[in-house]
Amino acid sequence: MAQIELDGINRIFQLGDSQVHALRDVSLRIEAGEYVAVMGPSGSGKSTLLNLLGLLDRPNAGHYRLEGRDVTTLSADEQAAVRSARIGFVFQSFHLVPRLTAAENVALPLMLAGIPPHERSRRVEQALKDFGLETRAHHRPEELSGGQRQRVAIARATIMRPAMLLADEPTGNLDRATGQEVTALLEELNAGGMTLIVVTHDPTMGERARRRVLMEDGAIQHDLRRETQPA
């Protein structure tokens, strides 16, 4: 049993009279601990696929089994519980809450999951240290650099120790050096056993992934695996 099993997924957007077929018959299996780069031209359905994987969106047809459980039929709140426990998100535009400090942003998932405050602050402190943000704990997002913001976002995405980390163009808003830093951080998390699925336009980042899923017009065109693991 693979961690992620997609079967015949279709996602159709209704735009007035016209329909946009964002995903066509997508079937995909991803094992726990894999490192997958999703690539393809703009509008090919990469984000749509990632949103479905993260239970932020529902397919019009097809089945999604996560860790053996069919999650397409779950209620909204059951899906929220799965997101909380198993899935971490990193967005291109960080999506930090502007009025909250770095520490508070990182603590959000713990708070939403009802973890008591003392354990929360212990875990947040540890996470901030792990991501080199301990001196920035009480800064608000506007006082942080892009790289720091994305590190806060990654710390937040992983604070619940999810089974999989989904990143939609995580380096898209960063300069090259900072982007590489963030990529290295994500790969480190993957090396620790977390499944990593990254949507990227950056070919060098794609090269580093052990598996590349190339999309075109809502369908998977190529599914390339590299046999040798990078050091």
């Binding site: 909204a76 709140d77 997101r83 909380s84 809450v97 937040r156």
Partner: peptide, 15 residues
């Protein structure tokens, strides 16, 4: 946007 984020982070509708 914030509401969407909270949902992505696992917040229930009730919360």
């Amino acid at each position: 946007g914030e509401i969407g984020l909270l949902k992505a982070l696992g917040a229930s509708a009730r919360a």
